[in-house]
């Protein structure tokens, strides 16, 4: 077995989780439920209508952060990539964010009055961050992803209408490319406020839980932005170029 990347189409799906439990949420994002018995990765993927090679590249890159097959990933159709990114968005907005909110709320309720103002400050800081994050995700869902799907559809049908060409010339993807950096910086600030600057007397158990969740969210977001910035954006540029060329513009 390759210890660095121990997953193949024949690996048992149950073993995937045994090897790396951090992949649990990834399986969820692909819509895979438990109870897969002794079925292999390829069998489970086929049942769930999932592109097994895409699935493998994604779990490998999550398992070993040093593995990032940018070019291989770019070869998958945009709709496959977007479906995955979209369900990741859903995971953030419907699961992660409410979980973290809940911890901060509990912290706010259980802290003694003398420290209440500090936790409320953190809570507001996090809420602001969330507003920004959700706005960012929504923009991708409503504008960026549909645009990309339109590009791909137009290529497969070989129909290039004027409005699409006009859209491409408006350079939407270049505008979108402005990085995810600001989001990451805010999250890092929040972590440091807790780690370095919160008085040690404040509910240690909850602070630990909160920090762990923040680190997880941060890592997940990093992986997510990596796919958007290094796979999706270059792929879109290539589609745009192809359309402009084939339509003779």
């Amino acid at each position: 077995m390759n210890n660095i990347l121990p997953f193949t189409t024949k690996t048992l799906m149950a073993d995937v989780i045994h090897i790396d439990y951090r992949l649990i949420p990834i399986l969820g994002r692909f819509g895979i439920d438990y109870g897969f018995g002794n079925k292999s990765v390829i069998e489970v993927c086929e049942e769930n209508n999932i592109n097994v090679y895409f699935f493998l590249e994604i779990i490998k890159s999550f398992h070993n952060h040093q593995y990032f097959p940018q070019e291989e990933l770019q070869k998958f159709n945009a709709d496959v990539i977007i479906k995955y990114l979209s369900s990741t968005h859903q995971y953030y907005s419907e699961r992660k964010v409410p979980e973290i909110k809940e911890i901060i709320n509990t912290l706010e309720k259980s802290v003694d009055p003398e420290h209440l103002s500090k936790i409320s400050l953190l809570n507001n800081f996090f809420k602001d961050y969330i507003v920004e994050l959700l706005k960012h995700l929504e923009r991708e869902e409503k504008n960026v992803f549909p645009y990309i799907l339109k590009l791909e559809k137009s290529i497969s049908n070989k129909v290039y209408d004027v409005s699409l060409i006009h859209d491409i010339e408006g350079e939407p993807i270049e505008n979108y490319e402005q990085s995810h950096e600001n989001m990451e910086v805010k999250l890092s600030d929040l972590k440091n406020l807790i780690i370095r600057h919160l008085p040690p007397v404040i509910r240690q158990d909850l602070c630990q839980k909160l920090l762990t969740e923040l680190f997880r969210l941060e890592n997940d977001l990093k992986d997510h932005s990596r796919i958007e910035d290094k796979v999706l954006v270059p792929k879109v540029k290539q589609l745009e170029k192809q359309i402009l060329e084939e339509s003779g513009k």
Partner: peptide
Amino acid sequence: KLGIKTIAGLTVY
């Protein structure tokens, strides 16, 4: 020194 970059974060500190 503080490990905080954003203005919002510095304000909280």
